[in-house]
Design a binder for these strands. Structure first.
Length: 423
DNA sequence: TCTGGGGTCCTAGGACCC
DNA sequence: TCTGGGGTCCTAGGACCC
C-alpha cells in the first residue's frame, strides 16, 4: 500500500511575510501583507491578515483605507530577499535527505524511504531545524502520494493542534482529511475543473476518489484521472530529483502609469529582454525564438483595448543580449499602435537549448525529426540508392520507389545524406 | 497499378500552480 | 492614480510528411 515509501511536503508558512518577519521581528503577531510590483495587489498575508478577511490577489488600492484603519502593516515585495531565504531553507532540508525535489520558492517534496517508526519525530526535528537555522516556520505533510501529502500539509496548516506536522498513513486518516476539505482545496482543482466535476455529480474530494476511473478519464482527461488515483494512494507523480531545464523564460512588468510613446516602450522591452537574457545565460541556455507582447489596461474598458504578441524566430540560437534586444525591438515595432495606453509589456524566450550544443540549423525540430526518421529507415530496410530516388524491400515485397525531395532537407544534414549515398 | 492512411509537428488556447 | 510575475501541461485542429 505504501510501495515506494512515503512523501513529505514541506511548505513555508506565509513565506514572504515570514521572510519580512525574520528581519523585522516587530512584525510578529501582527496582521501583515506583502504587495506585488507597484504595490498593486496582495501576494502574501500573515495569519492575522487572513483572519481580517484580506483575500489573496486583492487589489490594494481598493482596500487600503479599510485595512490600514484595522492596523494592517504593509510591505513591498523584495524577491531578492525571498530567493535568498528560499535557498537557505532548501539547503537545511537537503541535510535531512538527498531525496529532494524543490517544487517552488517555498515548497519541497522529500522522499522518506527507510525512516520507519521514527517518521513523526523526524518531521518535527526537521521543522525545528528549519526554524532555528533560517527563522522560517514550515508545515510538514506526509502521505504515500504527492497529492495526499498536499492534503496532509493543508491539514497541518489549518489546525494549530497538530503542531505543524500531519501524517496520513492509512486510508481512514486519509478519508477523514479528505472529508474536511473542498474540491478546490485539492492540488490541481480550481474553479473551472470544480464546475465540470460537479456537473457529473462529483461534489467533494471523496466523490472524486471513489469515482469511476474510466468515466473520469473520458470526461475530464488524463490529469484529473491521475489526480483521482493519487487520492487512492496510487502514486502517479514521482519525485523529480533532477531539476529539468526551463522550457521558457519570461520577463515582464506592469507599468506604474499608462505608456503611449514608442520610445518608452522600447526602453522597457530592451531592459526586460536584457533581464531575460541574463536568466538564460545563468542557466547555460540559448534561445532560437522569442515573443514580445504589449497590453493595455484590461480593467479600463473605456480605454481602447489592445493586446498583441509578435513571435520572432532567430537564425541562430543565442544568449547574446544585443541580438535578442534587436529581435525584440523589431517585433515591438510590428505590433505597437499609436494612441493606445499600454499598461504592460514583456518578452518570452522560447525554444531553449543547452548553450553548448548551439550550432546553426540544428534546432529546427522538424528537420531533426526527418533526419532521425531517415537514419531509422536506412537501418530497418534494405535501401538502394539511385540518383534522385531510393527503393527498398520490406517484408519481402517490392515497393514503388520513393521520390526523394532532397531540396527539403536542410543543410544541417546534407552531410548525413552524402554519407548515405556512398553506402 | 495503386490516389489512403497513419504519424508527427506546430500553434493557440485553456487550465492550473505558486 | 492605483488590479503581479512568473511557470507547466494538455488538447484540438491544421499542416505536412511519406
Amino acid at each position: 500500500m505504501t510501495v515506494g515509501g512515503l512523501i513529505a511536503l514541506v511548505d513555508c508558512n506565509n513565506f514572504y511575510v515570514s521572510c519580512e518577519r525574520v528581519f523585522q521581528p516587530e512584525l510578529r503577531g501582527k496582521p501583515v501583507v506583502v504587495l506585488s510590483n507597484n504595490d498593486g495587489c496582495v501576494i502574501a498575508r500573515s495569519n492575522e491578515a487572513k483572519a481580517l478577511g484580506i483575500a489573496m490577489g486583492a487589489p490594494w488600492h481598493l482596500h487600503r483605507k479599510q485595512f490600514e484603519a484595522a492596523g494592517v502593516i504593509v510591505r513591498s515585495s523584495n524577491y531578492t530577499l525571498y530567493g535568498d531565504m528560499s535557498s537557505r531553507v532548501m539547503s537545511v532540508l537537503s541535510t535531512f535527505t538527498p531525496d529532494l525535489e524543490i517544487y517552488s520558492i517555498d515548497e519541497a517534496f522529500l522522499g522518506l524511504s527507510g525512516l520507519g517508526l521514527r517518521l513523526e519525530s523526524h518531521a518535527r526535528a526537521l521543522r525545528a531545524a528549519v526554524l532555528r537555522w533560517t527563522g522560517i516556520p514550515v508545515s510538514v505533510g506526509i502521505a504515500p502520494t504527492k497529492t495526499l501529502a498536499k492534503v496532509a500539509n493543508h491539514a497541518a496548516k489549518k489546525d494549530q493542534k497538530h503542531g505543524g506536522v500531519v501524517l496520513l498513513l492509512d486510508e481512514a486518516a486519509q478519508d477523514d482529511a479528505l472529508s474536511k476539505i473542498e474540491l478546490t482545496d485539492l492540488w490541481g482543482v480550481a474553479g473551472r475543473l470544480a464546475a465540470r466535476l460537479r456537473a457529473i455529480g462529483i461534489d467533494a474530494p471523496l466523490d472524486l476518489k471513489r469515482g469511476d476511473p474510466r468515466l473520469i478519464r473520458e470526461r475530464l482527461g488524463v490529469v484529473t484521472a491521475r489526480l483521482a488515483l493519487e487520492l487512492r494512494g496510487v502514486r502517479c507523480l514521482d519525485l523529480e530529483r533532477v531539476t529539468p531545464d526551463r522550457k521558457s523564460i519570461m520577463a515582464s512588468r506592469s507599468f506604474g502609469r499608462p505608456v503611449t510613446a514608442l520610445t518608452e516602450l522600447r526602453e522597457a522591452v530592451a531592459s526586460y529582454t536584457a533581464r531575460a537574457a541574463e536568466k538564460l545565460r545563468r542557466q547555460h541556455l540559448a534561445t532560437a525564438s522569442l515573443m514580445v507582447f504589449i497590453e493595455t489596461n484590461r480593467f479600463k474598458p473605456d480605454d481602447a483595448q489592445h493586446y498583441a504578441a509578435w513571435p520572432v524566430r532567430l537564425p541562430v540560437a543565442t544568449s547574446d543580449s544585443a541580438r535578442l534586444i534587436g529581435a525584440a525591438l523589431a517585433g515591438l515595432a510590428a505590433i505597437w499602435r499609436d494612441g493606445c495606453r499600454y499598461k504592460k509589456a514583456g518578452v518570452v524566450l522560447l525554444d531553449l537549448h543547452p548553450a553548448g550544443a548551439v550550432q546553426e540549423g540544428l534546432f529546427d525540430k522538424r528537420d531533426d525529426a526527418r533526419r532521425v526518421m531517415l537514419m531509422r529507415t536506412v537501418d530497418r530496410l534494405n535501401l538502394r540508392f539511385g540518383r534522385d530516388t531510393v527503393s527498398f524491400a520490406a517484408a519481402g515485397r517490392r515497393q514503388r520507389p520513393w521520390k526523394l525531395q532532397r531540396e527539403l532537407l536542410s543543410s544541417c544534414y546534407t552531410t548525413a545524406w552524402d554519407g548515405l549515398l556512398r553506402v
